[in-house]
Nucleic acid binder design. Sequence first.
DNA 1: GTATGTGAACCACTTCACAGCA
DNA 2: TGCTGTGAAGTGGTTCACATAC
Lengths: 211, 211
Amino acid sequence: MPQEIPEVVIDRLPVYVRALAALERQGREVVNSQELGERLGVTPAQIRKDLSYFGRFGKQGRGYNVGRLLEELRQILGLTKEWPMVLVGVGQLGRAIVAYGGFVPQGFRIVEAFDVDAKIVGATVDGLTVKSLDSLPQVVKRRKVEIAIVAVPAATAQDVIDMLVGAGVKAILNYAPIAAHAPASVQIKDIDPVLSLQSMTFYVNNAGGKT
Amino acid sequence: MPQEIPEVVIDRLPVYVRALAALERQGREVVNSQELGERLGVTPAQIRKDLSYFGRFGKQGRGYNVGRLLEELRQILGLTKEWPMVLVGVGQLGRAIVAYGGFVPQGFRIVEAFDVDAKIVGATVDGLTVKSLDSLPQVVKRRKVEIAIVAVPAATAQDVIDMLVGAGVKAILNYAPIAAHAPASVQIKDIDPVLSLQSMTFYVNNAGGKT
DNA sequence: GTATGTGAACCACTTCACAGCA
DNA sequence: TGCTGTGAAGTGGTTCACATAC
């Protein structure tokens, strides 16, 4: 149904969700675009325009009901359900990802972990038994997993991604430092701290700020 | 000196650097914008336009000399030197960051680690002795550190960032899930896998791809 | 002949500014 | 009166297309 919504808008919604959740925990009932914008470093107009793609959630003269808007955005983003995920690559990085406590509270849970390395397969990591990569397609299908996390070395990452796409995965969080290729029907987001550092050094070197 | 260069352009340069480095390892001497674009999922015009902000690095009818262009871009980004960094927050996430092997080969090295927790201060993590947060300003100044990594809980992240800014740090890689505030003269890049997941679920839920 | 470098055209996102509703 | 929702205007980035250089 939503078709011409800019991707940047979708990328901002989770940020709004987080801010609203914080406000709700503080017991706030109402917030306006002005205040929300200040907290997030975004203009009020931006927020109102973003929300207008999806409906009318505010009340003129008042602002937005925090709980209501939060619920609406969660619904829009699909955050009202639990998302099972598979992890591919159980090396040092993969283990850190499994141990990371930030996913589960937001409804994202790694339910299976895979690796090619025979020395790792069969081991238990944080309660997960590492499976052979060969079994990935069947497991993905059986457990109806739509999201995967890739934490393998750059050299094998594209192959792994191809395999995941073939298995029917619809979204991939990629920690491998490569420019991954996938059909447009599959979402890919890269997590790449080195790229972030390498672009920041430009500004540090050419001091004076980004403007 | 460079002043009207879009930030998105700067963000793409490290991607070009990585591709060029890979080509160089393969022994390639020349590459054109067409091929580079295909590898990176970027249009050839984009690449040529991006590079044109900084100079004329190509030869008509031929393309770009891989080694030459790589060297130029490294120079532009400031990647020809070593960048010492400090880490704040030596919990589970912080330890994983220290252990991460992707920084050092690119010239980024964590030289000091800090924490508030008295139980952690004094401990040795991967060869680093964890220092008290109180000593951060002096250490940053003495060692002339310009880049910091923040891996503390959300609740204390803004305070830590303020402290880093006060100490003179010029770039911050922020792993805390907050919308951080800092003066425009200080670069901030966020690493936030949860936000990435939360926006991808939108497209998974509304299947049919991003177009 | 071939691929760069670049002004111009195009497109997408952001911000403005105000009508309209609570 | 106050703040949303939104067309219209503005801004910034991408793509085109071709003159230019090898």
